[in-house]
Computed example of a mutant assay.
Amino acid sequence: MAPRPHWWHVLQASKNEVRLAVDLYNRSGDARQLEAFIVHMSMGWLKLLQAHFERSGGDVYIRDQRGRRIRHEDGDWKYKSLSALMAEFFQPNDPRKVNLDFFVGLRNRIEHRHEKNIAALVAGRTQAYLLNYESTLVELFGEDEAVASELRFPLFLSSITEDAAEAVKKVRSQVPRGVLEWVQDFDTGLEPDLAADQRFDFRIYLIPYKGAKTEADAVMTFVRPEDLTEEQNAVMDQVRTIIREKQVPVSDLGTLRPVQVVEKVAAAISRPFTLHHHTQAWRYFEVRPSSGAQDPAKTKADFCRYNHAFERYVYTESWVTYLIRKLSDSDTYDSVMAWRA
């Protein structure tokens, strides 16, 4: 029997890193689980791309100007970083790359005593991190190499019966300000479609199933929206409506008109801030489309929402906080006010 190629061993090492990442994340207790998950998932992604490049004839080494491989002081070859391989493999706006970029940046900002709350804040992105690995693994190496059948859905205790909005507020209030601001800045740089992509931030509704059990039942079933029947879609719309009543302000309740945003920001910064300046700001940070846009509701929902009934935009307290933080910096203020389409 012929020996396995080197790339195959690298691939197995990649899968082992991911298995370990999931085991560490799902273990009981709260000892650095998120950081451990990110570290080992990053190693899993690095080795996955190395295996792909090796098998397909790509180059995984760092080279000098003459094209020769470079060695470390200990004699080992220098390999390209995860970021370098990502840049070669993914298109710039691939949601999988953006998700990876998010965790590369987040790892350096984790404060360990708040890690549990940070993990809750980014749970959807954490799930996407793993699902993206699995889908890319299968895409490159086939179903026989998949790890999904080896990973188990964890048993958990959760505040699943509490009001969802209050639970989210509690988590956010306990996350360090620096981490929240970094996540906010990262999200502000994303196009709305990209921010809403499940490959960047995986979001699901958990609905208890109360019907009679059948042999085909599974603990959890994932269904694509496009595969639902009209009747099932109607039920999902009903569920979204119920959840929106709990999580999203009804009509303009709790949101601000532009003039109210101006008043709050102007009182908090040392530079002038008028309605014209506010217009400059929402254009510069791209929080909503311009007037007359084909889809006026395509906003960055953390900051701005479109009210269809009154055909106007309203803004959030998060937008006010963001503007105060950003415009308190003189260079940012000057850039915003000098911006032209």
Rank of each mutant, 00 (worst) to 15 (best):
Y333Q: 05
F103C: 07
I324E: 05
F156H: 13
R27W: 01
S328A: 07
R325N: 06
V10M: 03
W77H: 11
E88K: 03
R19A: 00
T136G: 03
H40A: 08
P249T: 09
T241A: 08
T321W: 07
A301W: 06
A195F: 10
A2K: 10
S42I: 09
L82E: 01
R325Q: 02
V104H: 05
G58M: 01
Y209R: 06
V179C: 13
K170S: 15
V287G: 03
T126L: 07
Q174C: 15
S135K: 08
E54L: 07
H308R: 15
R107Y: 03
A309P: 10
D295Q: 12
W8D: 09
M1P: 10
R107W: 04
V175D: 08
E145L: 07
A128M: 08
D187S: 15
T214R: 03
I118V: 13
V168G: 15
L46I: 04
V336C: 13
V138D: 05
D185A: 15
N99W: 06
T321S: 10
Y25W: 04
F90R: 04
P289A: 05
P154L: 04
T299A: 05
T321K: 10
V175I: 12
K298R: 10
G211I: 03
P208M: 00
Y133Q: 00
F186G: 12
K170I: 14
G178A: 15
K213L: 02
G57N: 06
R96F: 03
R109H: 13
A128P: 01
D163C: 14
S83F: 01
Y133H: 00
V98F: 13
R71Q: 12
D237L: 09
G29D: 08
R312T: 12
D101K: 05
L206G: 00
A167G: 15
R55M: 10
F90K: 03
Q12S: 15
V248T: 11
E54H: 04
H40I: 06
K80S: 02
A31W: 02
S270M: 07
F202M: 04
N108C: 05
T279F: 09
F90D: 12
A195V: 08
P208C: 03
E17T: 01
K300C: 00
A341I: 10
V287Y: 05
I204L: 08
G142D: 05
N117S: 10
K264Y: 02
E145A: 12
L137C: 01
P272D: 14
A148T: 11
Q247M: 14
H114Y: 12
G57E: 04
A87L: 11
D64I: 14
R257A: 15
E191L: 14
S81V: 11
G58H: 02
R257N: 14
D74L: 06
Q12V: 11
H278K: 03
F222S: 03
A167D: 13
A293N: 12
R288F: 04
M43S: 14
W282V: 06
V175S: 06
D23R: 05
K80C: 01
L49H: 03
S158L: 05
I62E: 13
Q280H: 14
E181S: 15
K246E: 08
R240F: 11
R240V: 07
M43P: 00
G189W: 11
T321C: 09
G292N: 10
